[in-house]
Design a protein around this nucleic acid. Structure first.
Length: 290
DNA sequence: GTTACGACCTGCGAGC
DNA sequence: TGCTCGCAGGTCGTAA
């Protein structure tokens, strides 16, 4: 599942392969991949033909290709999206949704997505603080903790002001972006905090600890090329990352905790799973869980 | 305005 | 062997 480190690995690869190249043609092979481009697939293809990609940028899990006409192709990988750079004669992937070729005749860009939760859309770029320009649909997304302009105080004050569970807050892309289910569990394990702790009871020190651990775990994952459990997450060259070997919580149900040796448990959380150590991350006092 | 929850989607593995 | 069903989870729309 692509979260911040995985998306950043892809962004870096694409920045190397597609920046400053002029698009020749675009094929949309599955309409759902451009469902957020309201003018439709034909318009998507027509408007991109002849445009040059100036840069590949990212905020949280959102990535965009800045074009030479004040617009950008906003791209979200969803749960299973991949952006690959392939030789022009390469065999088409089973779940190829969008294919972009370039006028230099070099490697093409393939958007591959098995579960079709991801997609692309052309959007206007608007100026925000510090002269940055971001797509309209990304305006509501908070800066991610690896962003040099991320404000720790805003996060610390923000999470303590909320009225929800701490894991829900970590997954709230309006508060802090880039964290998904895997890195939320890893952050909570490192912080020795239960996922259901009410944010109203999070101390300033705990909030600072959560932030520091989220930065650490995602930085470490980024250094290893991201986390992958199967072929669903790969970089632009189709290679998997190695961070799954270093996970302390996610997917470790029934295994001993790396810190205390207690058996890790899996619990249902918001229609998905949450993994924790019952000793290091005890249930908060006074909290009733199903 | 804030929070919670269902829908979207498809491949895989378990169970029968 | 083949079928059914549950699970995986990021984002958005809607209801409360």
């Amino acid at each position: 599942m692509p979260e911040l480190p995985e998306v950043e690995v892809v962004r870096r690869g694409l920045d190397q392969w597609v920046t400053h190249r002029q698009i020749e043609s675009v094929e949309v092979l599955h309409s759902r991949a451009v469902r957020n481009h309201l003018a439709g697939g034909k318009d998507f293809c027509r408007r991109l033909s002849g445009r040059t990609i100036n840069a590949v940028s990212r905020r949280g899990k959102f990535m965009w290709f800045a074009l030479d006409d004040d617009h950008a192709v906003v791209t979200h990988l969803g749960m299973s999206g991949q952006v690959l750079v392939q030789e022009p004669e390469a065999e088409r992937e089973k779940h190829l949704r969008i294919r972009v070729t370039f006028q230099d005749g070099g490697r093409a860009m393939h958007f591959v997505d098995q579960r079709t939760f991801g997609g692309m859309a052309i959007e206007e770029l608007v100026e925000v603080e510090h002269g940055q320009r971001i797509p309209v649909s990304v305006l509501h997304i908070a800066r991610d903790p690896l962003d040099p302009l991320f404000d720790p105080r805003t996060f610390v004050d923000g999470i303590r002001a909320k009225n929800t569970q701490v894991k829900r807050a970590l997954l709230d892309q309006n508060l802090i972006s880039g964290i998904g289910n895997i890195y939320a569990d890893e952050t909570l394990w490192r912080s020795e905090i239960h996922w259901a702790l009410p944010t109203s009871r999070v101390t300033k020190v705990q909030a600072e600890t959560l932030l520091r651990n989220s930065i650490d775990v995602m930085s470490e994952a980024l250094a290893q090329g991201g986390t992958s459990f199967d072929s669903l997450y790969v970089n632009v060259n189709g290679e998997s990352g190695y961070f799954s070997r270093d996970l302390n919580a996610y997917g470790r149900e029934g295994e001993p905790c790396d810190r205390c040796g207690s058996i890790m448990v899996r619990e249902s959380f918001a229609n998905r799973s949450s993994f924790r150590c019952p000793r290091c991350q005890p249930k908060p006092r006074g909290i009733q869980l199903d």
